[in-house]
Design a protein around this nucleic acid. Structure first.
Length: 829
DNA sequence: CGACTTGCAGG
DNA sequence: ATCGCCA
DNA sequence: TGGCGATACTGCAAGTCG
């Protein structure tokens, strides 16, 4: 409760929240935002200290101290928060340079390799012991006692905000950092790229024959506390090394927990748990109201923190836990949650979650909730895991001492191998056992491109202009292809004749496209056996023989599709061939792959075609081809190198060898709108403390109403977000104006008076089931919204009534070529 | 059984 | 999807 | 430049609820 108020206060809810307790006086409403910048209150600095020095494990302790010492805290300039903390930690570890510094000239990775030397003993070693599972007891106790009147969450809020407060130097910090990292030569010293020895020791203690969930969470903490990628990788490497040595059977579940998955993507096992269920679980587990919990989530920007904090109160009396969560058990429970279905399944899921929560200690609840939410957000994800795995296995098998450079090379190669293998066969179920049994060296013998298992598709870089394309490909032969607006489809034909289709994200879409099986058979040329095709499936109007918009494609059924009942036909546009008759073509240049593609398949009009392409040499040709593609209802062009080493298929890599030129970058075609900011939503994660998104509207001069058109959450710099918060604070109103039209489902956390106008770029306009913009103008009941909206800039020169009008929106929609002929959505008018 | 809600998938 | 930030 | 994490809209699928 207190938290909600404070949130409101935080966002300066002048009207509604002000009424609560005035106690949080030092909040920033208006007073702060102006003067603060300069020389922030010293308080936060002081508060910060214990945090940064403590190993994150003792965070509990410091949090308390912190909130105690300064419950009022200072919420003036949130945003910088964690990042700052991290920096400071770095600063500390930087002090011990000598360690591996000798390696200077070689890649920093070398350093990461070395056994951590002793002198790394940072000022923050000892306290570690406080981490122990039982350590939380006294801490929580003290929390209870010292803050009798307070909801622990308000403590957390205060803490969060204290963190958020700038460590004194407002603006100077950025430049300083820059100077530090880039300006003054060389990389940062290698010392801070190494996992601190006490961390490694801790791993050794915690990881024995099996792995406790606490051990994993300890590792997460360590990772979360740093931003240095090499350090993160090294921490993870040490963790895995220990696991490989002591508890190899735990490696697979651990890897899954690190990347927050339960199985390979293509198996489609999902938790089926979202925020509402988690809120319910936390509420039930703590005996608090769901509404309160929800408010806390908004305030803290992280349901993990809410779980951790609210749990600690409840806990005090039932503290005698004996059970300790194990990784294997957590993983298994997660899988159970995922596979629970049918009647009352939701309450069963909640039950399991509550069960685990009850056993959580320290930070476990935080990470458990984040896992359930699907976002660990500790700065560690798949790519890092792959590197760490590679390194861990190399080091595990490494018996003889290599010189630093050789070792570094070995490690780098290993990382490349593991990544490449994984991208071709993205299954830890296969790869981890293979690694355990054969090591990295022979990995590619056992794990290779296999029809039936999706390859990570090659991605493309967005390009801002045609000239940028030319710059990039100046000395290469390249080709342009239509970029179709459909769904990526990787079509596999196995040796046994089965056909499988995977999406861009490696989901199995076979059941969605039974009609494609038949198309493939008709498109085969004699002699074509097994293959993997890269294609785009596009909605197709058979009568008019033309491409339909993506929005139509998306209305196709996804499960149990029977060929006879298909309403939206598709045409498959093939553009690459990755595997043919038992042979991988990944390393074959595009020109050759394309040739094989053309030889192995035939065009079946309206069912299976080749992506339209053209080899191009100059700007004008590209421009013409681009215009043509848009004219043909495509999104723009893909530009690809044709020959040589740089024309191979690089799974998962958003390589520079493929570029995309989208029409919305080209002025005149791209839609830019000026929209009024109606309201905003509290940010989460790294956006805690600022607004994470905003509700926008267009203006309808006929009735002088503002009609909600979309939310927006990207395109802002961090500075933008801070500035928006500060500026919009002045405009907060407690209720929406009577002339605001919006759907209940998009209600923002705070409302603004009509004032601010922003320029927004979008790719397309779409018929919307939830927004009101231009209702009745294109569709009698539905409004219009934007596809891929992003913030461009503030339009200070425009008043709210100068915003784009509903009529203009309707016109823009109509003028999208693809909608001009006929589209199912528009019932009447 | 229909309306509503939630989660997940796509771009 | 898009975008920005960081090493 | 790669890796990561913040956020957008829409529709189906599967659940809940009255």
């Amino acid at each position: 409760m207190a938290t909600q108020k404070s949130l409101m206060g935080f966002f300066g809810a002048a009207g509604s929240a002000a009424k609560s307790k005035p106690k949080r006086s030092p909040k920033p409403p208006t007073l702060d935002d102006q003067p603060k910048k300069s020389e922030e209150v010293p308080v936060p600095t002081v508060e910060d200290k214990p945090m940064e020095c403590d190993p994150s494990t003792t965070a509990n302790g410091s949090e308390n101290t912190e909130s105690l010492s300064e419950p009022v805290s200072d919420r003036s300039s949130p945003v910088k928060k964690k990042r700052r903390l991290r920096r400071r930690r770095k600063a500390i570890s930087t002090s011990d340079e000598e360690t591996e510094v000798a390696i200077g000239p070689t890649s920093p990775k070398d350093a990461a390799v070395q056994e951590p030397a002793t002198n790394l003993a940072a000022p923050d070693s000892k306290q570690d012991s406080a981490v122990g599972s039982d350590a939380s007891l006294p801490i929580q106790d003290s929390l209870e006692n010292t803050l009798p009147a307070k909801d622990p969450l308000s403590v957390a809020v205060a803490e969060k905000q204290a963190k958020a407060a700038k460590p004194s130097t407002g603006k100077t910090i950025k430049p300083r950092n820059k100077a530090q990292s880039t300006g003054s030569g060389k990389k940062p010293t290698n010392a801070n790229l190494l996992a601190p020895p006490e961390v490694v020791e801790r791993f050794a203690e915690m990881i024995q024959t099996d792995v406790s969930y606490a051990a994993l969470c300890y590792m997460f903490e360590q990772v979360e506390a740093t931003t240095k990628r090499l350090l993160i990788a090294d921490i993870l490497t040490h963790f895995f090394r220990r696991v490989i040595a002591k508890a190899p059977q735990e490696l697979l579940p651990l890897v899954y927990l690190c990347i927050n998955r339960l199985s390979p993507q293509y198996e489609g096992i999902e938790l089926g748990v979202g925020e509402s269920l988690l809120i319910k679980a936390v509420a039930e587990a703590t005996g608090r109201g769901a509404a309160k919990v929800k408010a806390d989530v908004v305030a803290l920007g992280d349901i993990g923190l809410v779980a951790k904090e609210s749990r600690s109160t409840q806990r005090t009396m039932t503290m005698f836990k004996t059970r300790q969560l194990k990784v294997a058990q957590v993983f298994q429970t997660l899988k159970q949650i995922a596979t629970t279905s049918g009647h009352a399944s939701m309450s069963h899921k909640v039950g399991k979650i509550k069960g685990m929560l009850a056993t959580c200690q320290g930070n476990e609840a935080k990470y458990l909730m984040r896992s359930l939410e699907g976002k660990l957000r500790i700065g560690l994800a798949e790519q890092t895991v792959l590197v760490a795995l590679a390194h861990a296995f190399v080091l595990h098998h490494q018996t003889e001492k290599l010189d630093v450079e050789t070792l570094a090379e070995t490690l780098q190669e290993a990382a490349a191998t593991v990544k490449s293998v994984y991208n071709e066969l993205p299954s830890y179920d296969v790869m981890i056992p293979a690694l355990l049994e054969h090591g990295v060296d022979k990995l590619s013998e056992f794990c290779k491109l296999t029809p039936g298992i999706p390859v990570k598709p090659m991605l493309a870089h967005p390009t801002k202009s045609i000239s940028e394309v030319l710059d990039r490909f100046e000395n290469h032969t390249f080709t342009c292809e239509y970029k179709y607006d459909g769904e990526r489809a990787q079509i596999h034909r196995l040796e046994d004749g089965r056909t499988l289709i995977f999406s861009r994200n490696s989901e199995n879409m076979t059941a969605k496209y039974p009609d494609v099986m038949d198309k493939m058979n008709r498109a085969l040329v004699a002699g074509t056996g097994s293959f993997i095709l890269d294609c785009e499936a596009v909605a197709w109007d058979r009568a008019q023989r033309k491409i339909l918009p993506f929005q139509i494609l998306s209305t196709r059924k996804r499960k149990d599709v029977k060929e006879s009942e298909i309403t939206v036909q598709v045409c498959v546009f093939a553009f690459d061939l990755l595997y043919l008759n038992g042979r991988s073509l990944l390393r074959v240049p595009l020109a050759e792959r394309r040739k094989l593609l053309a030889e192995s398949f035939r065009c079946v009009d309206g069912d299976f075609q080749f992506a339209k392409s053209q080899v191009i040499t100059d700007v004008e040709e590209i421009q013409t081809f681009l215009d043509e593609s848009v004219e043909d209802n495509c999104e723009g062009l893909m530009v690809k190198t044709l020959d040589g080493d740089e024309a191979s298929y690089e799974p998962s890599r958003r390589s520079r060898n493929w570029l995309k030129v989208k029409k919305d970058y080209i002025s005149g075609i791209g839609d830019t709108l000026d929209l009024m900011v109606m309201g905003a939503y509290a940010g989460r994660g790294k956006r805690t403390g600022v607004y994470g998104g905003f509700l926008l509207s267009c203006y309808n001069p006929d009735n002088e109403h503002y009609e909600a058109i979309c939310k927006i959450g990207t395109g802002f710099t961090e500075a933008d977000l801070e500035s928006h918060r500060d500026i919009l604070r002045e405009s907060i109103i407690s209720q929406p104006r009577s002339y605001y039209n919006f759907g209940d489902s998009v209600k923002p956390d705070v409302w603004f008076e009509p004032r601010m106008v922003w320029e927004i770029r979008a790719a397309d306009l779409s018929i919307s089931p939830v927004y009101q913009a231009a209702v009745g103008k294109v569709d009698s009941y539905k409004g219009i919204s934007l596809r891929f909206p992003r913030f461009v800039r503030i339009r200070d020169d425009k008043g709210p009534e100068d915003a784009t009008t509903s009529d203009q929106i309707a016109d823009m929609y109509q003028s999208q070529k693809i909608n001009s002929v006929d589209h199912p959505q528009s019932d009447d008018n």
